[in-house]
């Protein structure tokens, strides 16, 4: 009786991950985003909100690597600090989406019948409102701000995860090991916790990274519209908005936050794609 295979969880091995180019690039970019955000908490070249009118609109140079804006603030410091906002909004919005969405989706799959219908129609209802609209409504009620953005994007994420979870959970519920657990006397709640959730973690995490990217993009868009992050808290979206006036005289002011957004979104999407490939059963080795 020799074990037939090596003892790893199928598909998720470090070695295979390293051999996957888009996963590697995605992981590096995402890591850079995180490091930048964390670093900006303790150190930035200049204070990101330090107004210095005499040195306004400087070109990149030895003192200000990426130059300064119309108030003389250091662009690099603002981009670094802006990463904080993006990261925070992304984490919180995805957390709200996963928390509520998985709860709804898993409950719908476990309960079935009318409960399932009701829960899923509820998510359809939420889905019908775009994040922007939700944000405008929320901004009207509680005023614009980072929290508004987090809630708007978070609520928009809920149906995404609810649908994904329900679909994946339904597939797991149809497996024989669920029947075996029922035959052993396990209740729906225990089965969901012990069997269903561990088996649908992979697609949820993959979707999580992709929704993270969407959230960063949405935060930038909302801040650009003035519904999101308020000064003095730095935000890439607002940097873009403020750079608009100088688009022809100092285009770099728009380029740097734009590149930061693009790289962050690209990195997270590549990471998500890579994780999806790793978790894809078709790419796993079968007997």
């Amino acid at each position: 009786m020799t074990p037939a295979r090596a003892s790893t969880i199928p598909g998720m091995s470090l070695g295979r991950g390293l051999r996957h180019p888009s996963l590697c690039i995605g992981a590096v970019l995402t890591l850079a985003l995180v490091v930048m955000a964390l670093l900006s908490l303790v150190w930035t070249p200049w204070p990101p909100d330090g107004i210095d009118i005499p040195h306004r609109l400087l070109s990149p140079g030895a003192h200000h690597w990426l130059g300064t804006d119309q108030f003389g603030r250091d662009v690099l410091s603002m981009v670094m600090a802006g990463a904080q906002t993006s990261l925070m909004v992304g984490v919180l919005a995805v957390a709200i989406g996963i928390g509520l969405g998985v709860l709804l989706g898993a409950s719908a799959a476990a309960l079935g019948g009318i409960c399932e219908e009701a829960l899923m129609r509820l998510t359809d209802f939420t889905f019908a409102f775009p994040a922007i609209l939700t944000a405008i409504m929320l901004a009207a009620i509680i005023g614009p701000g980072t929290l508004t953005v987090v809630f708007a994007i978070g609520i928009f994420n809920v149906p995404v995860f609810a649908r994904l979870t329900r679909g994946a959970a339904k597939a797991v519920w149809a497996r024989d090991y669920i029947l075996a657990a029922r035959a052993a006397g396990k209740g729906r709640f225990a089965i969901t916790i012990e069997h269903v959730l561990p088996n649908i973690m992979a697609p949820i995490l993959v979707q999580g990274t992709i929704q993270f990217a969407t959230a960063i993009l949405a935060e930038a868009a909302l801040s650009y519209l003035g519904l999101g992050t308020m000064p003095p808290q730095p935000s890439w979206g607002r940097m873009l908005f403020e750079a608009q006036t100088f688009l022809f005289t100092a285009p770099r002011l728009a380029v740097f936050p734009g590149v930061a957004i693009a790289l962050a979104v690209l990195g997270l999407n590549l990471l998500g794609d890579g994780l999806r490939d790793l978790a894809d059963p078709r790419l796993r080795r079968r007997r």
Partner: peptide, 14 residues
């Protein structure tokens, strides 16, 4: 109970 498919009846994550 014992099921037919020994691949499907054991939770791969446990």
């Amino acid at each position: 109970m014992v099921f037919q498919d020994p691949y499907g009846s054991l939770d791969p994550r446990q």
